[in-house]
Design a protein around this nucleic acid. Sequence first.
DNA 1: GAAAGCACTATCTTTTTGGTAAGTAAAGGG
DNA 2: CCCTTTACTTACCAAAAAGATAGTGCTTTC
Lengths: 108, 108
Amino acid sequence: MKTYQLNGTIYYCPVDLTLSVIGGRWQGLVIYSLREKAKRFNEIKRELVTINDKMLSQTLKKLVEQEILNRKSYNEIPPKVEYSLTEKGKKLLPIFTQMEKWGKEAVL
Amino acid sequence: MKTYQLNGTIYYCPVDLTLSVIGGRWQGLVIYSLREKAKRFNEIKRELVTINDKMLSQTLKKLVEQEILNRKSYNEIPPKVEYSLTEKGKKLLPIFTQMEKWGKEAVL
DNA sequence: GAAAGCACTATCTTTTTGGTAAGTAAAGGG
DNA sequence: CCCTTTACTTACCAAAAAGATAGTGCTTTC
C-alpha cells in the first residue's frame, strides 16, 4: 500500500493528509479567515466569535509548525503579531472556494 | 451577522457548515471512499484500515441523516447493506479533487 | 462442529477538546 | 497610581469524541 508522510505522521492517502491540516474544529476556519490578508490574533478571534484564546493560540501554533501560516512579530508594546498564509497555505484556497460553494447550496 | 442553518445547527459561514460535514476524523474519508461506486460496510472498513466498527457505523448513520449517503438494505442472510452518495453528496466531490491535489503536492 | 463472514450494538477506557480564570510585561491615558 | 491594551501561556476541570473489545443472529464453508 502506498503511503504519504508529513511531519512524521503517515497517511494512507492524500485526502487523509489534507484533512489533517484543514479538518479539526478550528484549523480550516483560521486558514479561511486569512484568505485575503494578514491578521492579528485578536482580529481572527473576533471573526471566529466562539473560539477562545487557548484554542486560537493552539491552532495558530500548529499551523505555523506545519508551514501553512507565517508568524510575524513586531517588537512593540503592547505586542503586535501578524499571521498570514504561506505559499503552501495559499494553495489550500481552491479547496475553500469549493466548500463555500457547497455550503451555500446546502442551505437552499 | 448572516447565519446559515442545517439540521438545526447554526453556522456563521458556509465554510463552517461544509466543514461540519466533511471534517471530523472519519466523515470526509468515508465520503471519499464512495466517490466511484456503492460499497458495503466491510468494504469501506477494509479501505479505511484503522477505523473500527463503532466509528464506521456511527459515521455512516450521521451521513445518512444528513442526506449525504443513501443506505440500501437487501433482505438477505448474511446481511447485505450498500452505501452510496446522494446527489447532495456527489456535489462534495470537487472539494475532494482539490484536496487530493494539495495532498499530493504537500509531500514532495 | 468449529470458524468465518456480515452489519451492526453495547460497554468501557482513553484522548482530545473546550471553558474559565489567572498571570506576564511594558507602555499610554486618566 | 491604576486601568487598559496586546498576545500569549498555564492550570484545572468538565464534556465530548474516539478507540478497543466483545457480543449478536444466522448462514456457508472447512
